[in-house]
Design a protein around this nucleic acid. Structure first.
Length: 197
DNA sequence: CAATAGATCATCT
DNA sequence: GATGATCTATTGC
């Protein structure tokens, strides 16, 4: 992929893309291109976090300082800090007032691979550069500074390919949670080498 | 290989 | 004061 193509405003996902239920958004984000700070990668693994009885979601106990953005308008980034070391990127779905977001767990590098390698010197293979939510934010230089950022306008955006790739979606339980551990809300591109776990 | 420990801190009880 | 939507190195088989 050429950076000149990524620099255009065309094919950036719009607000209406995110203004749907979190499961639909999680499935449709697969195969799209995450772009930030001279790095681009195809999203290959997502997880949906819902409102209602989904106790695994950070929004399950209502609006707090941290979870406020999840209740806000769709198409914004929710970035949180966990385990004293890692930051994780979510994209907010659902209409304003209704909680729901999608955790971006892995991406396959498409452009800016040398920059990603520099940000993740310990990574042994290209496929693993942005595999796992903490590794992904590291490779893309995404931090809590991006919390609340509008993802329908740069510098952090998600794009479509000029020709949509074909692939099979596989649904599995979400990773690393206690509550609702058997809900099949993790979605991966079947067989892709950049998928984590 | 699989299992485990340690790092390390924002958030909420 | 405990916990957690993780990662890596290390240990043990």
């Amino acid at each position: 992929m050429e950076w000149s193509e990524l620099a255009t405003e065309s094919r950036i996902l719009t607000r209406s893309f995110y203004n749907r239920d979190a499961v639909t958004v999680a499935r449709e984000l697969l195969g799209k291109i995450l772009v930030h700070r001279r790095a681009a990668g195809m999203i290959v693994e997502t997880e949906a976090y819902l409102g209602g009885s989904d106790l695994a979601a950070h929004s399950a106990r209502g609006v707090t300082n941290r979870t406020r953005v999840i209740f806000g308008p769709p198409g914004h980034a929710y970035v949180y800090f966990i385990y004293g070391m890692h930051e994780c990127l979510n994209l907010v779905a659902e209409p304003e007032g209704s909680p729901g977001c999608v955790l971006i767990r892995a991406a396959e590098p498409v452009a800016g691979i040398e920059i990603m390698k520099r940000r993740r010197p310990k990574s042994r293979s290209m496929e693993k550069l942005a595999s796992g939510p903490g590794n992904l934010t590291r490779a893309f230089a995404i931090t809590r500074a991006q919390n609340g950022a509008d993802v329908t306008r740069g510098p952090l955006v998600v794009r479509k390919w000029s020709r949509e790739p074909k692939f099979e979606i596989q649904a599995t339980p979400r990773i690393g949670i206690r509550h609702c551990a058997d809900w099949p809300l993790r979605f991966v591109i079947a067989g892709n080498k950049a998928v984590s776990g």
